[in-house]
């Protein structure tokens, strides 16, 4: 068996506060293989962005990894020194964030930013770095890339800027890409372009990607496997067809059903009552139990189990497929 590109083993993140310790990421484990896109979905406060930040070592103090391991190609990176981590970021892990403007330096041309990043991470000549930069821009679909090298970020439209950010993330040929809500700030037509681009690049380069988003539609179209997070815990993980088509965790089921796209033509949307609990006030047992339509006594006391095989499981005492058998 090949080593996965990224593997999380029981990753836990704690934020100590004066009112007690919050746990935005609680015992999360999964792996991403080369060429695979893992979609991480959840609503705000689910801990999905925090998980991504924990992987790349960008947790804001006082948040810190309090347990578990992060393995990049079999090598532990959660205990690395800041300087070593900085070398890994950009070189082996590329990052794309929601707002393309904050990821680019407004005072440097995009050519300078790309070449500089390439020179920092790869042992190549200046001319070679420029050539690679042009190739990178070409690859992400920037028209007449050679002429655009001297342009500043503000001269690009939102969609083009996000393409530049992707080129920047990929220029040092990382093995893992972490994209945190990469299309949320973009219009629908541009969003479709960017997701198609991400899909193509992962396939062509055999790169693993972790795609964090709240948009079920984007996940359904882009990801190979999906991890659903709820209140810092992994609710369900599995292949995209399984998660979208036959969810087993009641939360996943409710989430999919409440997407307006899923109930086109119906008078009412199906809704999950209530809201995600705040981190400081997690209920006992399964965190979803107060909102769950199938809640039973056991759910109120025992946190959900991890059922199923390693990369296809739902953290629910009474997963939906099992229930149908009973009924």
């Amino acid at each position: 068996m090949t080593t996965p590109v990224l593997e999380l083993k029981n990753l836990t993140v704690d934020i100590p506060t004066r009112f007690g310790t919050l746990r935005p990421v609680d015992d999360v484990s999964w792996s991403i293989d080369a060429g695979e896109i893992l979609g991480v979905v959840g609503e705000s406060g689910a801990g999905k962005s925090m998980t991504g930040n924990a992987v790349i070592g960008l947790l804001d103090s006082p948040a810190h990894i309090s347990g578990g391991q992060v393995l990049l190609e079999g090598e532990r990176i959660d205990r690395l020194k800041l300087s070593d981590m900085r070398r890994i970021r950009g070189k082996r892990i590329g990052m794309v964030f929601q707002d393309p403007l904050t990821s680019l330096n407004p005072l440097l041309t995009i050519g300078e930013q790309l070449s500089e990043t390439i020179l920092r991470h790869l042992d190549v000549s200046n001319a070679e770095a420029d050539a690679r930069a042009i190739r990178g821009l070409d690859e992400v679909g920037i028209p007449s890339a050679k002429n655009r090298m001297g342009a500043y970020p503000h001269e690009f439209s939102g969609g083009m800027r996000q393409r530049v950010v992707i080129a920047l993330a990929l220029c040092a040929e990382p093995t893992l890409l972490i994209a945190d809500e990469p299309t949320t700030a973009l219009d629908v037509s541009v969003q479709a372009q960017i997701t198609a681009l991400l899909k193509r690049l992962c396939r062509e380069r055999g790169m693993a990607a972790m795609l964090v988003t709240h948009d079920m539609g984007v996940i359904a179209e882009t990801a190979d496997r999906v991890a659903v997070m709820y209140a810092g815990r992994l609710a369900e993980i599995g292949p995209v067809s399984q998660i979208v088509g036959q969810p087993r965790h009641p939360y996943t089921d409710g989430l999919m059903a409440s997407t307006p796209a899923a109930s086109a033509g119906q008078a009412r949307l199906r809704q999950i009552p209530g809201a995600m609990p705040r981190l400081g006030k997690l209920p006992d047992g399964c965190a979803f139990h107060p909102r769950c339509p199938f809640v039973q006594d056991k759910c109120r006391h025992d946190p959900g189990p991890k059922v199923g095989i390693a990369d296809d499981r739902a953290a629910c005492w009474f997963p939906l497929d099992a229930q149908e058998d009973v009924a």
Binding site: P247, D253, R270, P293, F294, L320, D321, A327
Partner: peptide, 9 residues
């Protein structure tokens, strides 16, 4: 979608 009690549906 799987079967759901009426209340949830």
């Amino acid at each position: 979608m799987s079967d759901l009690p009426d209340a949830a549906r």
